[in-house]
Write a protein that binds this DNA or RNA. Structure first.
Lengths: 347, 347
DNA sequence: TATTAATGTCGAAGCGCTTCGACGGACGGA
DNA sequence: TCCGTCCGTCGAAGCGCTTCGACATTAATA
């Protein structure tokens, strides 16, 4: 038996007002702080609130204030390549949203009609959308909505929406530059699965662009190999690479799921990563650390990106901040999977 | 430029009523179907609705009807052991919720106050909670709430709440029985990380219980090894096991993250899985299939469990179904990681 | 001391929807 | 032909909250 005056009869703001001997609006102002309330009144109200266990009714509040304190997050939930990465995005978004006193409504990627539903029905104040493709059909939809939206990823045409992502082009350059400086002359990218490339997922293309431009300006040879995320796909990619470009001494892997299999295959072929071959991973730090050896990596700060996305969307919600695109600078951390190449130190 | 009568001025039900030349309530009844409406009237209303692009306001609806059409899902978002599994639960819940015309509000495991918020604030109609521990502090909280809740997992005392989970005890028995039948006499469990065991996560304990009881009745020796999910943790578990019980020919692995590392370590030690050693994994099928060889496994039907959870919670929402506990029967699928043991076929 | 400006509180008008009771008309049975 | 039904529709009363304007007080200014 618990102390509860009446099961399922919940206190309303009027009950609180009555109990505190003030008007309804006063209670509301105590709660919102939008008008000054004297200390004694406030105290009485607050006492009444927790004596009654009062909780404002979210729907009523939304109706009256046109604010729901909920944001929508559209995430790809299909099992696939980058599940841990997705989880980190989600975690970042949810925890940061709480800092702004918002909750998160979860939409799945393929539920396109969900956008209309939550938007038109005023279920949410704002949206965050992950995994944006170059020519994403959802972009025009949310661009037409009244709620501000931020995209995680970079579409061809953002249509005035805010975007945030890792600067993959810079990451590509950074990885190649690092390999060049440490004496490598023949490098390769083992990248996303062919499907991802075909979808023109922009991050994959941006990484390749950066890699190629830096290879050119550093005078390196750079090869690119698509890579299915399965063990056999990874083996195949490694084998093809080593067959067509046997002089390769530096590999950049941008495929979390394939990474362990790539390393296994290299090991099977007697190639010692960190000595014969330098491998740089582009992935979250915890993934880099849970490989057979700690990987030199460019961090994909998924959780941070999620948080920044929320910051941006909240900024738009408050003031009249313009939309913007933020690309986070890549950071490379040396660990045990990379070493000097045939040309030795260059600095 | 788009066709939109007025940016941000959205149509209300009254606008629709006016446009269709009927009363507000008629429109409402067209939408809800709670009273009969003649075909011509219905048609006029529907035409008005999509001419105006009308969407009912979720908050207003919630206020008037005491139904939000949202359920809360509390999931562990910390990066950890079983990320892919969690994602599958989540996906199951979200997709099934949509079948019932509900959306999902995502709460993180550690945000205990979130329970109170969404519950007391009437933000949701029901709750689903994952990753329930034996003595979970959240259970009494949601048990006191007015919304129905289903737990994924089994607490010591469900306090009248519904539960759903894989029948891990049966899974433990099934795995051992299979090994016994295929001629193994010395088997072992490589299980959850020590932290998980210390939290008394019930699934780990239930699996062990089933395993031990079946080992006893089948006359096998069964050893249990906790296992950290890191590569080194997995290696250590394998090494310890092989040192203390060198006759082991059958291993049950119940730790998705450690699984690949366990297999690697066995390979490193020159032990051929599927020949020298039979390994049965307890994990989702797709995890079983993405190892170096296709694993014989007992499926952890995460997505199904999520769906069943939603089915159960919806049932309670509709009628006055009593609370229940559903344990899904384990299914073992033979693949390439298991073979006959020293005693040969027994059937 | 008279006048203005804060300061603190109240009352009432919605926000957009659901739902209950009422009501007019068509219909079948007596 | 009259009455009881059922069908389809309407009007109005909320659901619980926010917010605007008004109204006392009290404090600051001339």
């Amino acid at each position: 038996m618990r102390y509860q005056t009446e099961r399922n009869i919940v206190a309303t703001i009027d009950d609180v007002a009555k109990a505190a001997g003030v008007s309804t609006s006063t209670v509301s102002y105590v709660l919102s702080g939008k008008r000054p309330i004297s200390a004694p009144t406030r105290a009485r109200v607050e006492r009444a609130i927790d004596k009654l266990g009062y909780r404002p009714h979210a729907g009523a509040r939304a109706l009256a204030s046109a604010r729901t304190n909920v944001i929508a997050l559209m995430a790809p939930l299909r099992v696939g390549v980058n599940v841990p990465v997705i989880m980190q995005f989600v975690a970042g978004v949810v925890t940061r949203a709480r800092d702004f006193d918002h909750d998160v409504l979860l939409l799945t990627q393929d539920d396109v009609s969900g956008l209309d539903r939550v938007t038109g029905g005023s279920m949410v104040d704002a949206l965050v959308m992950m995994d944006i493709e170059a020519d994403d059909p959802r972009v025009p939809l949310v661009a037409a909505a009244k709620q501000p939206t931020v995209l995680i990823g970079l579409p061809q045409d953002p249509e005035g929406l805010s975007c945030v992502d890792l600067d993959f082009e810079a990451a590509g350059r950074l990885a190649v530059r690092h390999l060049a400086r440490t004496g490598h002359t023949d490098v390769a990218l083992i990248g996303s699965p062919p499907e991802v490339l075909q979808r023109h997922t922009s991050y994959a293309e941006r990484l390749m662009r950066g890699l190629r431009s830096q290879a050119t300006s550093s005078g390196l040879t750079a090869r690119v190999e698509a890579c299915d995320s399965s063990p056999s796909g990874a083996s195949a990619a490694v084998d093809t690479l080593l067959a067509t470009a046997p002089d390769t001494t530096g590999i950049i892997v941008h495929n979390e799921a394939a990474l362990p299999h790539v390393l296994s295959r290299l090991a099977e072929r007697g190639i010692v990563v960190g000595a014969d071959m330098s491998v740089i991973a582009v992935c979250p730090t915890d993934v880099a650390l849970s490989q057979r050896i700690p990987m030199t990596s460019i961090d994909l700060p998924a959780e941070d990106i999620g948080k920044v996305a929320v910051d941006m969307v909240m900024a738009r919600l408050e003031g009249d901040h313009p939309s913007e695109t933020r690309l986070l600078s890549p950071v490379l951390t040396e660990r045990e999977s990379s070493a000097y190449g045939p040309a030795g130190a260059l600095d």
